[in-house]
Design a protein around this nucleic acid. Structure first.
Lengths: 339, 339
DNA sequence: AACACTGACTGAACCGGATAAGTCAGGCCA
DNA sequence: TGGCCTGACTTATCCGGTTCAGTCAGTGTT
């Protein structure tokens, strides 16, 4: 089975290649009757223009790139990325854009990938995840002038378009809820310190703890894996004045923390309240179900994809705020048992 | 910043485009000294050949496609796909192939995507997941003569190359282990009935139950989500002669089942043993940790990617067996409490 | 010295589209 | 009736590679 080309369509319609091109792209230059005939023939022989030829003639590659820079083991277990991807994908495929995915080892490898994609004209733009404190990717992308949308921010995006969510506000909501329940000693198990949104959350946590007159905020660092989440929790719960509530930077660490609490003989939520960030179905799966800070991640991805397509179309590099995560109370939070 | 083309390299090297092409592709026709000089210049100005131009000249697109046909909510929560993707990716990027991903709603949409990819010459081949009982994708791909590797099988792959794992053997191992522990009433919560590997497991389950002289095998159908896994478990545990052990077709349903058992006041593993299929880190996160049938999923993906590249290179459409999942006993299985 | 032969390269065609520039028939108006 | 538009096309060029058919200098052969 030979792939049909524009010449095949032209021959069967009895017109030139140019006429077919005009007809297919909705350009003026062909009569309505001819356009219809050409479109019918194209549909009949199953013609889609070669993406390569189209890209070569100066048009776009009709593809966007997404490079993921996380170790395979955390990539798999966190639903976040797959949900993000499915949202991105929904938006892209509706506009018949393809998504090119690459898993990279570190930010430098990621920059190399961007550079290659750019030189190969493989993608029209990229989505950038996991913004870091001093992110070399930002100036690199600006130098390449490769259209990009940063998923994160709003600060330090260096003039790149971005889509962000107000993590500080969400964290404040969670802390204030715990305070209202009567908690005074609230700890936090944070994700990778090098990521910008971790810093945003940490600053918000310190600030809200001070304002609420809580004990000095305790933050333990981890890396989103269950192992580290468990270790961090053990450390927190072994301390002399252990916290009565812990906020985790992702759901996987929160579930690990729940397990540790149970293994140490503590009852959740009576002895320890737990709040997870990222409200995936995982949170509803465990017992008790976890109170979580959640939002619509596929919608976030779709939002970012739309923003990227706008930049590719030549729009300005603006920042757009997405929904703020909101707290869904479930069985893992309650007033602390009076000591 | 302008993208360097082959003509830029040629000009700086003082040779023709053709010579540069030969040099870059390791073809004969240039002297070793000239080849070195051309390679150096290419590296210096950061030249990578345009994938579009290369694809257009009859060469390959240097990309493979993966269409995922699962609802977004199960896609996100199951680590399987993301792990598979990261394995595929590792293999592809080592050979500087790109991965094009698309999420589709149903098998017909998936076929449409294959047809479009084929007509657009966007990919050189595809990986096919979730083989079904009567899978229309198989004849469709054969008609298109689009290089493909089915992840699954070994039956009903209709002459397409495939990479498979012996689910029947793994299931037998799990059942025999439970029998050795003393279990007589073993139930199973199965995944989507339309998937081929579900049928393979069901047949193996029926067979091994008969051979071991167990009570008539009970299989409840679900769809891999926590909700359905919980519902299926409730049904099983509410029956008059409830099982003393349950095998789940994925980890998410197993975790949901664990929660249901605890919520119904049953102790795991004393009152109920649980075995999960797919040993993701999730299984180690809950309490007690789940006994699971696991294998190296990234390696599976890498294996499939290698097979696909071999088919693209013109190799025969063979079948290759991947590692069989093996049982890792953890805290969720034990001898049944004597009734 | 005439010849074939090889290695190292050049020139041009080609892939399949997009698009600027050119052609040509027909309608309109003076 | 001739000139001028306009619409509906066609023709030709270009994008950036690959590849095939030369070209040509240098080498070896007899």
């Amino acid at each position: 089975m030979k792939r049909p080309t524009i010449a095949d369509v032209a021959r069967r319609a009895g017109v030139s290649k140019g006429a077919v091109s005009y007809a297919l792209n909705g350009q003026p230059g062909v009569s309505e009757a001819t356009r219809r005939r050409i479109l019918d023939i194209a549909a009949e022989i199953g013609f889609s223009p070669s993406s390569a030829a189209r890209a070569l003639s100066g048009a776009t590659a009709n593809a966007v790139g997404l490079a993921l820079c996380r170790p395979a083991r955390t990539l798999g277990i966190e639903p976040f990325f797959m949900e993000l991807i499915s949202g991105v994908e929904a938006e892209l495929s509706a506009r018949s854009y393809a998504l090119t995915l690459q898993v990279v080892a570190d930010p430098d490898a990621e920059i190399a990938v961007y550079r290659r994609w750019w030189a190969e004209r493989r993608v029209d733009g990229v989505l950038v995840c996991d913004l870091r404190i001093d992110d070399r990717r930002v100036p690199a992308l600006r130098d390449l002038q490769l259209p990009a949308v940063v998923i994160g921010g709003p600060a330090r995006t260096g003039g790149l378009a971005h889509v962000w969510s107000d993590d500080a506000a969400a964290l404040v909501e969670a802390v204030e809820y715990l305070v209202a329940l009567g908690h005074r000693r609230i700890a936090r198990v944070a994700g990778l310190a090098s990521l910008l949104h971790t810093r945003v959350r940490t600053e918000a946590f310190d600030e809200v703890c001070r304002q609420s007159g809580l004990t000095a905020p305790v933050t333990v660092w981890a890396d989103y894996t269950g192992e580290e989440g468990a270790r961090a929790t053990r450390r927190l719960l072994s301390a002399a004045d252990r916290p009565s509530a812990v906020i985790y930077d992702n759901d996987v660490m929160a579930i690990a923390g729940l397990s540790v609490a149970q293994e140490m003989g503590l009852s959740v939520p009576a002895d320890l309240s737990i709040v997870a960030w990222d409200d995936s179905p995982l949170c509803r799966l465990v017992h008790p179900p976890l109170t979580a800070l959640g939002r619509d991640i596929p919608a976030y991805g779709a939002h970012a994809a739309r923003a990227l397509l706008a930049v590719i179309a030549g729009g300005p590099a603006t920042g757009a705020q997405d929904e703020t995560a909101h707290l869904t109370p479930r069985g893992s939070t309650a007033p602390p048992r009076t000591p």
